[in-house]
Design a protein around this nucleic acid. Structure first.
Lengths: 178, 178
DNA sequence: TAAAGCATGTAAGAGGTTACATGATTGG
DNA sequence: CCAATCATGTAACCTCTTACATGCTTTA
């Protein structure tokens, strides 16, 4: 996670640790601590994926090496079913992924959420039928359904956008869609 | 987290490990693995917070001990600013928290989300002004704002409900509020 | 009786948090 | 010159994940 975050942010422009943390906060990843960040920077430097630039004052800005760029592409491309935060992180760097892979990733994510929605709906039905959950538990179950539905809607928009991108890229691949 | 989950679920009724996992899945905590669950059960047993009941077949059902009930109350009551998952977990067991503590917890959570919303809005403004974020990053920023707003609305409903509960409990404390 | 699903468990290690320590820089 | 904020770093610890191993129980 932290590796993906660092490499992805440095891919755009060199930054030092403190800046990286601020940028991650902006992107919604609030709980990245310095205790995670700085050791990760050293580790990535040792692996030759990033390198420090001139130090201005106390600031130590890092930039991505060519090897780092390759590794970043590899990590970004290798997606499975994953945690919400991790998906969001990947999405933050979608610009560096080829359109086809974007669409694949989005669809897989959608399936994952559909599954979660079914689980949540089944749980609410069971709970309502048996009538044994308190107000707060019931509220949580309904909220789970609501947020998952909202996420699916959002994903549908992203998928629609990604499709137009792909069509723009591949001008006319012969027929329609199969 | 896992301790709170186990103690909270056992507080209602005895269950064995496999059942606990199924119930957590229903409540929306999808990624609790057996590798977390079973060692946690042993640890809690050693600490005397839970105890195994009769084993029917291979199933080993645990129940909460009196000490366990105390410890659960302690953990449930001690809230600070916390991760989303952890807040949801706490909410799942709100029925075991006194109304005053419920209201306190909900309000603190609300403040936390308000802060997050401001951060997210500022980030979007900056991003729009500088116009340097791609479509997907911008989509992520807007989505962060949307989900946080939805969470705050939800919280407001919960707070309203918790208030009626508290008023029902304390019949007439002399004057109005303060 | 074989397969699928139920059920419990361990070991290694990845990944993260918290708390602490240090010092530079900037603004009132 | 003091406080706040910027900035980097370390060490101890905790928690969870992954992968593996095992064996029971039900049903086709």
């Amino acid at each position: 996670m932290i590796d993906l975050a660092i490499l992805g942010l440095l891919r755009k422009q060199p930054r030092h640790g403190y800046e990286l943390k601020a940028r991650l906060l902006e992107l919604g990843f609030s709980r990245v601590s310095f205790g995670t960040l700085y050791p990760a920077l050293r580790r990535l430097e040792k692996r030759g994926l990033i390198e420090p630039m001139r130090q201005s004052g106390r600031r130590k800005a890092y930039r991505l090496t060519p090897t780092g760029e390759e590794e970043f592409a590899r990590i970004l491309g290798s997606a499975g079913d994953e945690e919400d935060r991790r998906f969001n992180m990947r999405l933050a760097f979608f610009q560096y992924l080829e359109p086809a892979a974007r669409l694949r990733t989005l669809k897989r994510r959608r399936n994952q959420l559909i599954g979660r929605l079914h689980t949540a709906q089944a749980a609410l039905q069971r709970s309502t039928a048996e009538g044994q959950d308190d107000h707060y538990t019931a509220a949580l179950l309904r909220h789970n359904i609501g947020t998952t539905e909202a996420d699916i809607d959002w994903l549908d928009q992203l998928i629609a956008y990604a499709r137009t991108e792909q069509e723009a890229e591949v001008p006319r691949p012969l027929g329609g869609k199969k």
